[in-house]
Nucleic acid binder design. Sequence first.
DNA 1: ATCAGATAGTAGGGCATCCGAGCAATTTTG
DNA 2: CAAAATTGCTCGGATGCCCTACTATCTGAT
Lengths: 169, 169
Amino acid sequence: MSEIDLLREARRQWEKNWGEEPAPSMAAVTTLMRAQQILMAHLNGKLEPFDLTFARYEALMLLYLSGDGSLPMGKVGERLQVHATSVTSLIDRLERSGYVSRVPHPTDRRTTLARITAPGRGVAEKATELLNRDKFGMGALSTESHEQLIELLDRIRELGGDTVQAPIS
Amino acid sequence: MSEIDLLREARRQWEKNWGEEPAPSMAAVTTLMRAQQILMAHLNGKLEPFDLTFARYEALMLLYLSGDGSLPMGKVGERLQVHATSVTSLIDRLERSGYVSRVPHPTDRRTTLARITAPGRGVAEKATELLNRDKFGMGALSTESHEQLIELLDRIRELGGDTVQAPIS
DNA sequence: ATCAGATAGTAGGGCATCCGAGCAATTTTG
DNA sequence: CAAAATTGCTCGGATGCCCTACTATCTGAT
C-alpha cells in the first residue's frame, strides 16, 4: 500500500535518465492523457443511464442545437472533427437508441440527414441538465482555473490546426 | 472559409441556452478532449516509423526502465493504469514487432513476464530521443506553462483516485 | 450532352480500451 | 489435506477512432 503517484514516479525516472530538460513536457503529456482518461470515464458513467456515451452525447447535442434539428452526416463529422466513418457508426448507434433518425436530403440524393427525434430531444435536455449540474466532472477546479486551463490547452490545439482566437471579422 | 473556432462556438451556444454558469466547465472539458486528441495524433505520427503507437511506447518504456527489463503482465497494467486485457493486446503487438517477448515466471507458473528484447531497447532509445527533442509535441508551451498545466490537471486526476501529492512516508 | 472529377455515405479492417467469462495455478481456510 | 477463494492471463464482444476502398450521385468543362 505504498500509495505513490505513478506519474510523478515516471517523471523522476525521466530526469534520472535524460536530464531535467525534457521531463516537464513528458510529465505534462502523460498527465494530460491520464486526466482525459479519467474525465472520459467519469462522463461516460454519468451518461450511461441515458444510453449515451460522451461521443454520442456530443453528436446528439450538435443536432439538438442546430437550427431545425438535422444536419448532413458530413457536416456532423466536420463540426465534431471526427472522421466520416466515425459519424456513420455514431449515428448508427444513436439511431438504434431511437434518438436520431436518418432521412434523405430533399434535393441531393447523395446526402443523408441525421435528424434528432422527440425522445432524442428529451434525453438531450435531461443529460445536459445532469452534466451542467455536475460541472462536467470538473468541480474540483474553480471557474478561473477553467479559464486558465482553456488558455493553456488552446495553445496545443493550434498545433492541430484548430483556429483559436477567431477574429470577429 | 469562415475559419471559426468550433469550440468557442459551442461555448457561445451553451451560454445562450443554459447561462454563464455551466459554460466554463463545458468549454474546459471539450478543450481538454480536443487537445488530447491532437496530441495523441501528433505523437502517433512521430512514433509510426518505429512501428509504435503512444500506448505501446509507454509499455515499452516501462519495461526499458524497469530493473532487469521484465515485468509480470499484471504489473504492467497496474503501472500503466489500463485493464489487464489491454495489456494482453499491447504486449501481443509489441511481441509481433520483436520488441518484447513473453517468458514464463521462474517460480509462479501462473505469471507471464514481458521482457524487452535488444531491438526493443534500441527502439526505445531512438524513439525517446526523438520525443524528447520534440518536447512531446508540447513545444508551444514554456516550461512554466507545463508545470502550471500539470498542477491543474492533477486536481482532475485526484477525481480518479490517482494519488497526487504523494506523501514521502 | 457527356465524361472526368469531386463529394456523400458506407463497408471492412486495424488499434486501444473496457467488460464479462473462463481456465489454470496458487494461496487461504476450515 | 481438501475445498474454497483469489490471482494471473487470455478470449470474445462492445465502443470509438482512424484509414482504405467502393458505390452512388452531382457538377463542371469541353
